[in-house]
Amino acid sequence: MTRLFKVPGDEPQTLIVGDGEGRRSIAYRTALSQTANATGLFWLSGFMSDMASTKATAVAEWAAEHSLSSTRFDYSGHGVSDGPFTDGTIGRWLEEACAVFTRVTAGSQVIIGSSMGGHIALLLLRRLLREQPAEAPRIKGLVLIAPAWDMTEELMWKRFGDDARRAILEQGIYQQPSAYGSPYPITRGLIEDGRGHLLARKPFDPGRPVVILQGLLDPDVPDAHTRELTEFLTGGHVKFVEIADGEHRLSRPQDLALLFDAIGKLV
C-alpha cells in the first residue's frame, strides 16, 4: 500500500538561500510519496500570493489523494518566508525556486506555475537547461495558469502611466492599486532586475509538454498576452486551454477540475 508522510497540513520547513546580506530563510512544505518513481508536483505561486492559497493547497491535497509527492514554498517577502516584500525581485525569487527544486525535490516533477509563477517556471526550466543540465530532465512538463511572462516589463512598466513611472524612478516605489486588497508595492529594483530575466520573445523550445490554462475574462494577464507566449515557445509542445468565463484566479471548482485534468495527463 502506498503511504504518504509529511502531509500537506504539516508545519513548514525552512531552507537557507543566499549568502551574506542576501541570506534568507525560505519556508516550504513537502509531502513525499513512498511509491517508487512517482512523479512529484512542484508549485510556484503568483505575485503576492503564497503556498497557503486556494490553488496551492488544492494541488497539494490532490497530490496526496493520488499518491504523488508535492512541494510548495513561499518566495522571500511572501507568506512565512524571510524578508520584506520590497526587497523582492524576479532574480531573487528565481534563485529561491531553483534552490527548493534542486535541494528539496527528487525524481521527475511536473511544475505548476500560477501568474508570475508561470514566468518563474519558464525561467527555472531555461536556467536548468543552461546551467544544470543534469537537473533539467527531471522536469517532466509544465502547467501554466495565466502565465505572466516578462511581467515586470510587459504587464507593469509598459502599462504604467507617467505618474507611476515617475514615482518608480524618483521615489523608488509605486503603490499599484489592486482589485485583490492592499496596493502592490512596485519597486525600481523589481523593474530593473526584471529586465535581466526576460524571455523577450526569443524562440525557446521547452522540450517537454506545456499546458496553458487561460481565462478569457482575465483583466490582469489578458489572453492576448498569453497567446503571444505560444508564438515563441517552439517545438510543438504547447497546449492552450481557453476558459471562456474564467478570470485571473481560476480557483473555482470547475477551474480546479481542469487544472487537475491537465496535471493528471502529465503524470
Rank of each mutant, 00 (worst) to 15 (best):
F5R: 10
F5D: 05
F5W: 11
K6V: 01
D10V: 05
D10L: 01
E11H: 03
P12I: 07
V17N: 07
G18C: 12
G20F: 06
E21G: 04
G22F: 15
R24E: 07
Y28D: 07
T30M: 06
L32D: 07
A36Y: 01
L41N: 12
L41Y: 11
S45M: 12
S49W: 04
D50M: 02
S53L: 01
T54M: 03
T54Q: 11
K55C: 08
V59Q: 09
W62H: 15
A63F: 13
L68G: 10
S69I: 02
S76H: 08
G79I: 00
V80A: 00
G88K: 09
G88L: 13
T89I: 09
I90H: 10
G91L: 11
G91N: 11
W93S: 05
F101C: 11
T102F: 05
T105D: 06
S108A: 05
S108D: 06
I111C: 05
I112H: 06
H119D: 15
A121H: 03
R127F: 15
R127S: 13
R130Q: 14
P133L: 09
A134G: 12
A136D: 08
I139K: 04
V143N: 01
A146W: 10
A164V: 04
R165S: 03
A167Y: 02
Q171H: 10
Q171P: 04
I173E: 14
I173W: 03
A179I: 13
G181I: 10
S182K: 09
P185V: 06
P185I: 03
R188S: 10
G189M: 07
E192A: 05
D193I: 06
R195H: 13
G196H: 15
G196D: 06
H197Y: 15
D205V: 08
P206F: 12
P206A: 04
R208D: 00
P219C: 13
D220C: 09
H225I: 02
G235Y: 10
G236N: 03
G236M: 00
E242M: 03
A244R: 14
A262E: 02
V267Y: 13
